[in-house]
Every structure is written in C-alpha cells, then in structure tokens.
Write a protein that binds this DNA or RNA. Structure first.
Lengths: 196, 196
DNA sequence: CAAAAAAACTAATATGCGTTAGTTTTGCTG
DNA sequence: CAGCAAAACTAACGCATATTAGTTTTTTTG
C-alpha cells in the first residue's frame, strides 16, 4: 500500500487533479483510465474515490480553473486605461507564461473540453465566447484609435489566439530558443509582421 | 436493412472514411464508437468490416491522406524559384483552402494523431518534423535575402503554422467574414503585422 | 492507548467497446 | 432464373472501463 502525497500548498485532491492534467494531456481524456491515474500515484483506482467524485469532475476542475485564470487577466487588461498596443502585448505575454507555467492544464482545457458533460460544456463554451468578444472589443478600440491597421477584428483575434495556443508545440524547441527570445519574436511577429 | 452508398468518385470504403472523419472530429477518435459510425451510415457495426480492416485503419487513412496533400504542396512551393514572400503567401493560402475543403480530415489529423499506433505514430511525427524543417529553411532563405525581418525561424514557423491551424475555429464566424476577407486579412496580419 | 476518522484495500457490478463467426439477404451475371 | 459473390444481418466473445460496496489498515485525536 502506498499513499497519496498532497500537492504543495494543497490537498490530496489537488495532487490528483495535477496528475490527471498530465495524464489527460499525454493520452487524451477518454483514453486515460482511472487505473492509469491511480498507478501514476502509486495507489489502487478505487482509492481515488475517497478524494474525488468522478473522472468527469477532474476534467471540470481543470477546464474551469484555467478558464478562470484567463478571464481574470483579460478583465484586468480590458478594464485598464491607456494605449491598446501595450495592453495587447501584455495579454500575449500572459498567454505565453500560462503555457509555460501550467502547460498540462492549459493543454487539457484547450483540447479536452469537448468531453465535458452538460451543463459544463455549455458554460465553458459561453466563457470562451465571452473571452473572444472582449478581445474583439479591444482590437476594435485599437483600430478606432488608429493604433492598429484596419482589419476584421474576428480575424485578428483568431490569428492572435491561435498563434499563442500553438505554444503548446514549443516544448520541442526549448533547447534552441529561450522563453524570452520566444516572447520577443512572437510579439514582434504578431504586432509588426514578418516582412522587412 | 440499409446500404452503404459509395463516395462520389470513390469506393464504399472511401465513404466510410469520410464519415469517420466527421465523427472523429465531433467526438474524438476514442470516444467515437464503431456503432456510432455504423449508425451514421444506416448500417450495423459489423457490416463495416466487410469494407474496412479496423477502426485504427480509418484513423491512419485520414492522417496520412492529409499529410500527403500538405507534403506535396510544400514540396512544390519550396522547390519553386522566385521571392520567398509570395511563396510563403501561397502556402498560407493553401492551408486556408485545405481547412475549408477538408475541414474534418485536417482537424482529425491535427488532433487525433496521438491515437495512431506504432509504427504509424512515429512515421506521422517524422513527416511533421520534415514539414516543419522545410518551412524553417524557407524562412531562413527569406531572412538571408533580407526579404524577412531577422527572426528566430522556429518562432516564425510556430506562429505561422499555429495561426493557420486555428482556422478550424473559424466555422463559427463564417457568417460575418467571407473566406476571401479571411484570407486577405490573415495574410496581411502574418506578413505585415497589426500595428499601423 | 483506545476510539474515531481517514484512506487504503479487494472484489464485484454493469456497461460499452472492437471485433469475429456464422447466417441470411441482396443484386449482379451467365 | 439459377448460381455466385458482395454485403448485409444477428449473436456473441473477451476485454477494459468507471464506479460501488464492504472490509481492513493506517493515522489522528482525546
């Protein structure tokens, strides 16, 4: 018999959620079994149920924890005063840092939300939509102030969000590019383009 | 009893693969069952096996069909003569068109390749890596010719590929932005930036 | 140190899965 | 229309799954 070790500054439940995020990222939510998860914690599958309600609850915790963090940051940024460009830059930097600090959880929220049950699925999509709309408003503010080029704001948001989401593929290049270089180059690319 | 209707200019197997792509995109490969697939074709699950080898084979067909199309196009573009920028532009346009014409299959190849068994998983990743490397070489060519800004080519490729991959989220906005507007705006954004 | 609570265990349940075997129906071909 | 191949069907297999029930072990508490 082994024991579940609580997460740093957290409960045993938190520890399970963290391991679940790693496992769900690696294998996908459906393909990852509770036995896999239990094994990775050195425990039998049924023992997990002393701490959690269900497998689905784990996914919900992960997805909404991530959503909350992004929402808090975006709210701070959109409600701040000042030029749009530096605020946009701050948001991109935040996305990059989230992808580095909470890689597994962000990855799972991005890829496995489909497996959420109702009403969580609907809530999650609604939060995403709201996030997108706030960002669209920020772009429009920038275009109106002539800080940004005239561009269809939906397209700009799509490009921005997709680009930062793609940071999940960056793990492979960690050796050749540092996080700082990445940040600088990506922000430059997204804000000022590739062409000399 | 119903019947499987062959794909236009194709076999019944092709028809199954097409439906599988749609189903795998909607529910994910693991969550999608052969019974789901059969039902969507108006047939019993076991009947599918008169035409296909296995569920896994369906995923393999989808992933490698997509990979082949992308590889062919990139080979044509990288081996062409001329300036880098218009070639890069052509590649981005190709990605956009693929996402519109073969949405389900591209989506599945992008999201479900993890579920490929060896040696297909290894082959697929190798093809992706080669694709990325060719694109990096193209960017480096552009930087050397001073057509492009000095940027870490890994970052540029990551940003470009991620942005076009994100087109899968565009279905929602089809009403407010046409494919042509999307193409123009995204290419402008990626090549010349957002800032006025 | 005894009682109580927490958390592990074993065993089992019901369900759904991919796939196979064997059989029947359909539809083409001579 | 007979014979044959293609393709559908029903039924079942073996296996993995999430979860529950009941029990035992460990840890905490008074």
């Amino acid at each position: 018999m082994s024991k579940i070790i609580p997460a740093r500054n957290g409960t045993k439940k938190d520890a399970i959620i963290l391991k679940a995020a790693t496992l769900f990222r690696k294998k996908g939510y459906v393909a990852a079994s509770m036995r896999d998860l239990a094994e990775s914690m050195g425990v039998e599958a049924s023992s997990l149920y002393n701490h959690i309600g269900s497998k689905q609850e784990l996914l919900q915790s992960i997805c909404f924890k991530v959503a909350l963090k992004f929402n808090n940051e975006l709210t701070a940024i959109t409600s701040a005063k000042g030029k749009v460009v530096p605020r946009l830059e701050a948001l991109i930097r935040f996305h990059i840092h989230m992808m580095i600090d909470a890689y597994d959880e962000v990855h799972v929220a991005n890829h496995e939300w489909k497996q959420l049950h109702e009403p969580y699925l609907g809530n999650f999509l609604q939060e995403r939509k709201a996030y997108e709309n706030s960002l669209i408003a920020l772009i429009e503010e920038g275009t109106a102030a002539k800080e940004l080029k005239p561009i269809h704001p939906h397209v700009a948001v799509l490009t921005l969000l997709s680009a930062v989401r793609g940071l999940e593929f960056w793990q492979r290049h960690k050796k050749s590019v540092t996080a700082d270089e990445l940040e600088t180059d990506m922000i430059n690319h997204l804000l000022t383009g590739l062409i000399q």
